[in-house]
């Protein structure tokens, strides 16, 4: 198993979470060989860190459509006049 640095993952949060759930399901299988289990464990931990980072990285983006510009314009926290 090639260890991927969490920052280098290109998955969406949803994909990463789904894969993580998969990894856990695979690990739970009693017939999973040790080598494979170790690889899964490493992958799972990478995904975990990735998901946690994604959740922490809260880049809030709220825009409102403007008839004047015909585009979505950035606004504050819902206190738009």
């Amino acid at each position: 198993m090639m260890l991927t640095h969490p920052k280098k993952l290109t998955l969406s949060f949803e994909q990463a979470l789904k894969r993580l759930e998969n990894v856990i399901a695979c690990l739970e299988k009693s017939d999973c060989p040790l080598e494979e289990a170790l690889a899964l464990y490493q992958e799972g931990m990478t995904l975990l860190v990735y998901c946690r980072d994604k959740l922490d990285d809260a880049e809030k983006k709220v825009t409102m459509f403007s008839k004047e510009t015909g585009k979505f314009e950035r606004i504050g926290d819902g206190d738009q006049a």
Partner: peptide, 27 residues
């Protein structure tokens, strides 16, 4: 409505629960 309480409630809830989502409003 861009001025209603509904929008404030929606934005506040979205930002509290899952700020990762982008929000686009058509007033």
């Amino acid at each position: 409505s861009p001025t209603g309480a509904a929008l404030k409630d929606i934005l506040a809830t979205l930002s509290r629960r899952f700020p990762q989502s982008e929000v686009r409003i058509v007033p």
